[in-house]
Design a protein around this nucleic acid. Structure first.
Lengths: 225, 225
DNA sequence: TGGTCGTATTGATCTGGATCAAATATCTTC
DNA sequence: GAAGATATTTGATCCAGATCAATACGACCA
C-alpha cells in the first residue's frame, strides 16, 4: 500500500493484541467514549445500534481483516455497540496514536481516507439493498457478500459456517426471522445451496449472483424509467 | 475548528468557485474519475446510484454547507451521480490538493476524519430508517431532517420549499410516490403541517419528533426484547 | 384560450412478507 | 442426560403499503 518497511513497523508498534474474546463479549457499547479502532484477526463481530423503539438494528457483521469503530470518530463517542459472535482475536488500535502516525506518513493517511470512504460505499450498498431489493435478493446478496469476503481471506467461498443467528440475519436484512428461514429452505429446494443448521454450502454461485444482480425485479416499487 | 487564520487561507486558496449551476446539471456521474469534493453553497443537490435493475436509488439530498463525493475516495471513481435540483452555487475542492494540506495541518486532518466519520453515522441512521421504520415514521424523519439542517444554516426550520419531487422523496425513503402523497395529506389533516405543492410549513414539530422517536412501533417486525 | 405534458392526488385492489401460532430441534445447565 | 430455555422451521392469516387506474392540477407554449 505504499508503506515502507519502517512505516509498517511504526504502525505495528501502536497496535495492541488482546487475549482472545468470547461469544457475547463487547468491544464497546453505544455511548462509550471513543478511544480505539478494532480489527478482527479471527472470528467475527456484529455491530448494532439501539433503535428508539427499544429494539436494535444490526449494522454489520465483521469478518477477519475488517475494521470496526470508524463511525465513532465524529462524535468521539460510540453510537453503536460491538459484540463478539464467536471466540475471536481482535487487535486494538488507539486512534490518537494512529492519527499522529498518519500525519507523518502521507500514504498511511491516504489509506485511512480510503478506509473511511470504503465504509461509506458499503453503507451505500446496504441502502440500495434495503430500499430496492426484495427478500430473496437481500438474502442472496448477504450470502454472496459473506462468500466473497471469506474468499478474499483465502477461505472457501462456498463452504462456511454462519456465526450469527437467523434472527440476527433477519434484523440485518430488514426481514422477519421466519422469512429468512423460509428462504433458506427455498434456496435449498431450488438447488442453490445446502443448509444444515449453521453450515452453509453454496452450490450455485452464478445463480445467486443472477438473483442479486438485475434479474428479478426488486421490490418493483418506484419503477424508474 | 482549531484552524489558524493562515490555515483557513491556505484551505481557501485551493477551493474553486464555479459559476452557478442549474436544475439538471451534473456535478459528476457514476463511473467518472474522482478528482474533487463538492460543497453546496446555496441550492441543493441529489446523489443517486444506479441499481442493477436499471432503476436508481436516491442516496441523499444535499443542502448548503454539506459536502459531496466522499464515497469516491476509495475507488478513485464515483459510484454515484450528483445532480443539481435547483439553481445552486457549488464549490469544488480538488482532493489531491486537500490531501496535501491535511498532511501539514493536523487539525484539518482531524476534521477530515470527522467529516468522513459523520457521513458513516448518517448512513447508519438511514439504515435504521429503512430497516426498522414504517412509512409514517420515515416521512416524519425526512421532514425533521430537512428542518434541522435548514435551521442550522439560519433558515426557518418550519417553513421551506422542497426542491425535490414526491417521486424522489419516495425513492429516497423506500416508498412509492402514492404513499408519500397520501402521507402528506394525512399529516396535513392531522394538523402536523401545511402542504401546498412544494411549499411546506411544519406546524407541530414536537408531534413529528414523537412520531419518529420511539412512539409508534416501527415496522413492529423483529420485535427485539 | 385551449392543448399538451409532467407531476400530484385520490380511489380500488392486490400481495410480499409480517404476524400469529404451534411443533420441533438445539443448546444449557446442573 | 433430563428439564428447561432458546432457536429454527413450518403453516395459516393478516395488513401496510405497492400496484393499477383514473383524475386533477400546474406550467408552459403556440
Amino acid at each position: 500500500m505504499g508503506l515502507t518497511q519502517e512505516d509498517v513497523e511504526r504502525l505495528d508498534d501502536i497496535v495492541k493484541r488482546t487475549r482472545p474474546l468470547h461469544r457475547g463479549d463487547f468491544l464497546f457499547r453505544d455511548g462509550d467514549r471513543f478511544r480505539s479502532l478494532y480489527v478482527v484477526k479471527t472470528g467475527s463481530v456484529k455491530t448494532f445500534a439501539p433503535s428508539p423503539e427499544g429494539g436494535e438494528q444490526v449494522l454489520g457483521f465483521h469478518l477477519p481483516g475488517e475494521i470496526i469503530g470508524l463511525d465513532a470518530i465524529d462524535k468521539d463517542e460510540h453510537a453503536c455497540s460491538a459484540k463478539v459472535l464467536e471466540t475471536s482475536a481482535i487487535c486494538e488500535i488507539p486512534f490518537q496514536r494512529l492519527e499522529e502516525l498518519t500525519c507523518s506518513i502521507p500514504s498511511l493517511q491516504h489509506q485511512m481516507y480510503r478506509l473511511l470512504s470504503k465504509e461509506i460505499g458499503h453503507d451505500t450498498d446496504m441502502l440500495l439493498l434495503l430500499g430496492k431489493k426484495n427478500a430473496e435478493e437481500r438474502l442472496a446478496a448477504f450470502l454472496l457478500s459473506l462468500s466473497q469476503r471469506l474468499h478474499k481471506r483465502g477461505l472457501s467461498p462456498s463452504d462456511f459456517y454462519l456465526s450469527m443467528s437467523r434472527h440476527e440475519i433477519g434484523n440485518y436484512l430488514g426481514l422477519a426471522v421466519e422469512t429468512v428461514s423460509r428462504l433458506f429452505t427455498r434456496f435449498q429446494d431450488d438447488g442453490l445451496m445446502r443448509v444444515d443448521r449453521k453450515h452453509i454450502e453454496l452450490l450455485d454461485l452464478p445463480a445467486l449472483e443472477a438473483l442479486v444482480g438485475g434479474n428479478g425485479q426488486g421490490r418493483r416499487q418506484n419503477q424508474q424509467r
